[in-house]
Structure formats: C-alpha cells, structure tokens
C-alpha cells in the first residue's frame, strides 16, 4: 500500500528492526548476489592478517539494501524517486540494526505529491551506521 498525503505529517516516523545478530553467512549471501567479492567482507584470514581489521564487515550496500526495505515498506512498491545514503560507521557480524524513516517534507512537484524522508540506521549501541534521504511519490 502506498502512503497518502492525508495520512502523514512532518515528523511522523516509521521504525523497523532490519537484522538481528547479523551472520557472516548473510554477508556471503550478499557478496554472491551483488557480485562484490571483496575479501574484506568474507575472508577472515585476509581481513585480519592483510587488511588489518578485527574481523570481516558488511558491505555498505548490504546496509543500504536492508534500509531500503524499511523505506519501501513505508512508501509502497515502485514509489521511490530518490534514495541516497552515507555510510557513517562499519557494520560487523553480530550487529543488530534498526532503521528509521522520518517525514521531513511533503510537497508538490510537476503535478506529483512527494514525500521527503530522512533515513537513519543505528546499531545495537545506538551508533549510526547509515544516514540518508529518500523521496517517494505518494497519493493525495
């Protein structure tokens, strides 16, 4: 179901838990589907001994993908016109991520009604891992 202008106001929020206890296997699954096989995401030996990180970490795009689910669950299928994020902290195996979309503005443009959302995803320590914005077409 798409959002309608009549049912939302600036400041409304939509929150979802995106993943609990992120497993290394899901990171492998994302590598396979996306085609990004950078060993820093899946290869413990490489990432600790060569790259110098404490363990493997998730693709930023996995976090963006999971956060995209929150956005499309809120605005409806096929409604997004823009979605952009900054990756502000790394996501590690074991993390539990919670995303929030907040209505920043409701406006008209080229005869369409649009909603601008501020999107934030945090980990279990309430540390932001992703910060961004999304714009979607909504019903009147």
């Amino acid at each position: 179901m798409a959002l309608s202008k009549a049912k939302i106001k600036v400041g409304d929020t939509h929150t979802e838990v995106l993943v609990e206890d992120l497993r290394r296997t899901q990171i492998v699954q994302y590598a396979g589907a996306s085609g990004d096989y950078n060993p820093v995401h899946t290869d413990e030996k490489f990432v600790t001994e060569v790259a110098g990180y404490p363990t493997v970490f998730a693709h930023g795009m996995l976090t963006m993908g999971m956060t995209g689910m929150l956005v499309t669950n809120y605005v409806g299928d096929g409604r997004l016109t823009k979605y952009g994020v900054r990756f502000v902290n790394q996501v590690w195996p074991g993390d539990t991520l919670t995303g929030t979309a907040e209505v920043a503005e409701i406006r008209e443009e080229d005869g369409q009604t649009l909603v601008d959302l501020t999107v934030t995803t945090v980990n279990q320590d309430d540390v932001p891992v992703l910060a961004g914005t999304a714009t979607a077409r909504i019903d009147d």
């Binding site: 490489f46 600790t48 060569v50 110098g52 979605y83 952009g84 994020v85 990756f87």
Partner: peptide, 30 residues
C-alpha cells in the same frame, strides 16, 4: 593471507587500498 605479495606495512597503516578502499556514499535517482 593473500595471493598478492605482502607490502611492508607500518603499524596501524591500512593496506585496505589494495581492496579499493571503502564505500562512503551511494545515491540513486529512479
């Protein structure tokens, strides 16, 4: 640990650049 020859590396220095660095931002317009 890697198929590539090891670089001499200073303490705390990243060789992550061998892997193309990190993704900082991504934006899509549909």
């Amino acid at each position: 640990g890697t198929g590539k020859p090891k670089k001499e590396k200073k303490e705390g220095e990243s060789s992550g650049s061998a892997a193309g660095g990190l993704h900082a931002e991504q934006h899509f317009e549909y």
